[in-house]
Amino acid sequence: MGSRQITEKSLAMLRSLPRLSLGNIRDNPGSRKNIKRGRGQHGGDKHGAGNKGSGQRQNYMRLGYETGNNPFYLRMPHEHYYKGHHHRRQYPPISLLEIQKLIDTNRLDITKPIDIASIVRSGLYNFFPDQKHFGIHLTDEGMDIFSAKVNIEVQWASEQVIAAIEKNGGVITTAYYDPHSLILLKNPKSFFQTGQAIPRRMIPPPDVIEYYTSAEMRGYLADPEKISEERLRLSQKYGYQLPILESDKNYNMLCERKDPRQIFYGLEPGWVINLRDKCILKPKDEELLQFYAS
């Protein structure tokens, strides 16, 4: 009966021991690592800067510097045709297809003249006057399916685009805005909230004066009579029947143009717009009037 005694003894022993719980079990072997206690917040490490050299000292070399080698960007001979490329005007493009999409999705109102302000307001086009962006370049993509009759003003357009718009009975103008005017057109509200008088639009620089005075490109400084001649000539070149503008029921809307000094449709330079009081303040001082009219 020795085995029975042993069993009872061991059972008695078990009963006297504490119950097994999470508090008194041993860890899995290898689950705890006895690490050295480093000094500092991150255990005395390198703070992500690596070991030795430029990285550790965090004296980052300037871009393109090759520690004493002849740098790659200076190794080539001078390429003069890139001279001044960072000063050139840029015209971020928008295609006729996109314009058609804006019209079809009711983001552009074609019962009113369209300019850069209304296109930016659609929310699907953006540009940055401080990055040498000088407005819209209307490209010819989707010109075969463009079918809206619009009075549109862009900053750059090609001959095909002009033809595509005039074929549908619309009119197009290419107009120059100086960067300051473009800032105003991009966000009129923030300008009106500064409580300043609307400034005048400045004249284009010499290298684009030909573009904006040419009737072929429908420049805003071109002679209107020459423009109507060019409209006819272009229709004959591209072989479409030019819709008669005078008999159009939207004739007044289609004939609306900005003054070369004007920035916003319907608002003249020198006016102060107050959005809070919903009022327009016009100057009466003779000198001011003269300045804003010049």
């Binding site: 009106f192 909230q193 500064t194 409580g195 300043q196 008088a197 020198g270 102060v272 107050n274 959005l275 809070r276 009081d277 303040l281 100057p283 001082d285 000198e287 001011l288 300045f291």
Partner: peptide, 27 residues
């Protein structure tokens, strides 16, 4: 700042709107 106050809060801001235009010197 005064112009800004007028632009934002209108005539209730108490700013004289004639400040919005440049003075003779500025002109």
């Amino acid at each position: 700042y005064s112009r800004k106050m007028y632009g934002k809060y209108g005539i209730a801001s108490g700013v004289n709107p004639s400040l919005c235009w440049p003075t003779r010197e500025e002109l």
